[in-house]
Amino acid sequence: MSQPDPRLAQTFCGMSFASPLILLSGCVGFGEEYTRIEGFSNRDCGAICLKGTTAAPRSGNPPHRIYETSSGMLNAIGLQNPGVDHVIQNILPELDFNETRFIANVSGSTLEEYREVTRKFNDSPIDAIEVNISCPNVKAGGVTFGNDPDMSAKVVEACREVTAKPLIIKLSPNQTDIAGNAAGCIEAGADAFAVINTLMGMAIDIENRRPYIGNNQSGLSGPAIKPIALLKCHQVYQVSKAHDIPIIGQGGITNAVDAIEFLLAGASAVGIGTALFYDPLVLPKINQGILDYMHRHKIQCITELTGTLQLNSADSVLTGTGCSC
C-alpha cells in the first residue's frame, strides 16, 4: 500500500497524520463505507472523523434528507447512529488503525450526554475526540449549544474532565463571534478546532409549497460556503495561534487550491466532505496538487504553510488600483 508523500505528514495534537486531508464526520459513515470503491484508500487521508455518536441510538430525521442546491447541497440527517456502546463494541474493533487515524465525533442533547459519550470513547482505542457543538439538524444540543459561548465552554469543560485524548471542537458558522467562542473553548480545555460545520439553510418545492427536506431546515455544505468557511477559519486562527491550538479548516474544499487557501488562512489540516460525493477518488488528486504547490514554492513540509497568509495593509488597500470608486 502506498502512503502519501512524507512531506505531507505532520504531528497534529500528538497524532501522526500522513496527509493534511481529514474525512469529515457524517460523510463517510464509520470509516469503512468508502472502501467499497476500488482505488479509494483510507491511507490517503490523515484521519477519518466517524459519524456523530450519541449515548443512545438515534434513528435520525425523516426523508428527504438530501437536496442539491447551486454549488452545494443541503442535508438534515439528524445524527442517525447506533449509539456509543455499539460503536465501541462492534465498530471500532473492525477498523484498521494502521491505515489512518480515527476520530470519534461526540454529540449530545445535554451536558451530561456529552460527558458520558466522551468518557466512554476515552476508554476505547479511538485516536481523538471531536466535540460536535454545531449540528444544525437536531432539536436539542448541537448548534443551540454551539451558538451560546457560555454553553460551548461548559460542554468543552465537561468533556475535558473525562478525557486526556485530543479534544477537537467543531465550531458553528451560525454565530456572531466565532473567534470569541473559540477563545472561551481554549480556556475550557480545547486542544484543536474544526472550522466550520454547515450553514443553516432551506430549499422549497414550489409545486407542493413544502421544503424539500423532511426536517424543513438543513445544513448547507459544498463550494457555496467556501468563502465563509475560509474567513471563519482565519478569524479563529487569530485567537488560536497564540496558544498553539491547530485548526482543521473545512467547508467546500474540492481541490488542492481550496485546500491550500485554508492552510494559508491558518489551518494545519483540511476537511473533505461534499467533494467526496462529487469524486470519491479525489483524495490522491488533492494530495498531489498540494505537493506540486509545495514544490513550486520550495516548501519542504506541509506545516510551513499554516497561517502564512499576508494580509493587504491598510495603505495598499487605500492606494490599490483595483478599486473603481
Binding site: G26, C27, V28, G29, E33, Y34, R36, I37, K51, S59, G60, P62, P63, H64, R65, I66, Y67, M73, N75, I77, Q80, Y212, T274, L276, F277, P280
Partner: peptide
C-alpha cells in the same frame, strides 16, 4: 435522493420494519 451512494452519509434512508421496531 442520494449523496454518497456508498453508505457513508445516511442521506437516502427509508423506514423499514425490523424485529426491534422501525429502522432507517
Amino acid at each position: 435522493f442520494m449523496a454518497c451512494a456508498v453508505g457513508g452519509c445516511a442521506g437516502c434512508v427509508v423506514a423499514v420494519k425490523a424485529e426491534q421496531g422501525v429502522a432507517m
